[in-house]
Computed example of a mutant assay.
Amino acid sequence: MLNVNNIVKQYATHLALDDVSLKVEQGKIFGLLGPNGAGKTSLIRIITQITAPDSGEVIFNGQRLNSSHIARIGYLPEERGLYKKMEIGEQVLYLAKLKGMRTAEATKKVRYWFEKLEMGSWWNKKVEDLSKGMQQKVQFVATVLHEPELIILDEPFSGFDPVNADIIKNEILELNKKGATFIFSTHRMESVEELCDNIALIHRSKKILDGSVSDIKEQYRNNTYWVEYDGEYPVELSAGLFKVLHKEILQGKTRIKVQISAGKTANQLLSALLPLVNIHRLDEVIPTMNDIFIDQVKLKN
Rank of each mutant, 00 (worst) to 15 (best):
R221D: 03
I202C: 09
R72N: 15
A106C: 05
L175G: 00
D230M: 12
N176S: 09
E193F: 02
Y220V: 07
L270S: 12
K126W: 00
G39I: 10
G159I: 09
A165H: 05
D18T: 04
A142S: 14
Y233M: 06
L17W: 05
D54A: 07
H203T: 06
M134R: 03
G89A: 03
L274Q: 15
L117H: 01
D19T: 10
K28I: 00
G211Y: 03
T224Y: 02
L150K: 06
A262M: 11
G56I: 07
E228C: 08
T186W: 05
I286W: 04
Y75C: 10
E90P: 04
A106F: 00
Q49I: 08
C196Q: 09
K137I: 08
I279M: 14
E228G: 02
I46A: 11
E118W: 00
V144P: 11
W113F: 15
W122Q: 03
P162K: 05
S121T: 12
L98W: 04
L17N: 13
K85V: 00
N3T: 07
P53W: 02
Y75F: 15
F60M: 10
E118P: 00
I294T: 12
T143K: 01
F160T: 06
D54T: 05
S191C: 01
T181K: 10
V127G: 01
N6H: 15
D295P: 01
D129C: 02
A262Y: 08
Y94D: 01
M289W: 04
L273K: 12
L76C: 09
Q49A: 07
A96R: 00
N301R: 13
